[in-house]
Computed example of a mutant assay.
Amino acid sequence: MSIYETLSHIQVELKAPKNLYNSFGKYKYRNAESILEAAKPLCAKHGCTMTVSDEVILIGSRYYIKATATVQDKDGNAASTTALAREDETKKGMDGAQITGTASSYARKYALNGLFCIDDTKDPDSDEYHNQTTAEPQRDTNAAAARLAARAECQRAVKSYCQKNNADEADAWKLISETIGKPSKDFTAEDWKQGQQIAEAWK
């Protein structure tokens, strides 16, 4: 049996449930760890090993994390897929390890998606998911209030940092948005809380 036939069996048998839950958006989602947890027993069952690796590459003037997900059989035959995620241009407010780790997690998830033919078009970081969810009117007033409160606290933290350090607020918001991975207009309450933590961690 070729490695691609073996991989096809794993793809058919793989069940990677969306076992994580966003309480504000009321949706379930999966991350790279969810996929790995589901795939490891199947790889063992079919006599394969699975690896996920990263490398930093320079494209133009920007650094990217290139993640490679590989399944290899006992004869050394392998099948791989890759995915890219861009590192932030600046490291203001976060050290290099944190910036790289965020990009690595994103790239690894989508490399695994490609390897195992997992469709994440309705996950929270896809346009389709965004269009479907934002088309619905906001009905939960408590959740909306929590989002507004979290936004206010995040704005306070950013303004406080910028005033103390003579920093530009536009640059601060750009960094927070790029770190979280979405524009601030799409932030959930949890995103605003994360933004607050990022701002309060700046020195």
Results as ranks from 00 to 15, higher is better:
Thr51Asp: 15
Ser53Gln: 15
Ser53Val: 07
Asp54Ile: 03
Asp54Thr: 06
Asp54Trp: 08
Val56Thr: 15
Gly60Trp: 04
Arg62Asn: 06
Tyr63Thr: 06
Tyr64Trp: 15
Ile65Arg: 15
Ile65Met: 15
Lys66Val: 04
Lys66Cys: 12
Ala67Val: 11
Ala67Cys: 10
Thr68Phe: 01
Thr68Trp: 05
Ala69Phe: 11
Ala69Val: 09
Asp73Leu: 10
Lys74His: 09
Asp75Thr: 03
Gly76Thr: 11
Asn77Met: 06
Asn77Ala: 12
Asn77Cys: 05
Thr82Glu: 10
Thr82Gln: 12
Ala83Pro: 01
Ala83Met: 04
Leu84Asp: 07
Arg86Gln: 13
Arg86Pro: 01
Glu87Phe: 00
Thr90Gly: 09
Lys92Phe: 00
Gly93Pro: 05
Gly93Ile: 03
Met94Tyr: 08
Asp95Phe: 09
Gly96Asp: 14
Ala97Leu: 15
Gln98Trp: 01
Thr102Cys: 04
Ala103Asp: 05
Ala103Met: 04
Ser104Ile: 04
Ser105Gln: 08
Ala107Cys: 06
Arg108Pro: 03
Arg108Asp: 02
Lys109Asp: 04
Leu112Pro: 01
Phe116Gln: 07
Cys117Arg: 14
Asp120Gly: 11
Asp120Leu: 11
Thr121Gly: 03
Pro124Cys: 04
Pro124Ala: 06
Asp125Met: 15
Asp125Ala: 13
Asp125His: 14
Glu128Met: 06
Asn131Leu: 07
Thr134Asn: 12
Arg139Ser: 05
Arg139Val: 00
Asp140Trp: 08
Thr141Cys: 01
Asn142Leu: 02
Ala143Ser: 14
Ala144Val: 11
Ala146Cys: 02
Leu148Phe: 05
Leu148Tyr: 07
Ala149Asn: 13
Arg151Cys: 07
Ala152Leu: 01
Ala152Gly: 02
Glu153Gln: 12
Glu153Lys: 13
Glu153Ile: 00
Cys154Gly: 02
Gln155Ala: 10
Arg156Ser: 15
Val158Thr: 01
Lys159Phe: 07
Ser160Pro: 00
Gln163Asp: 14
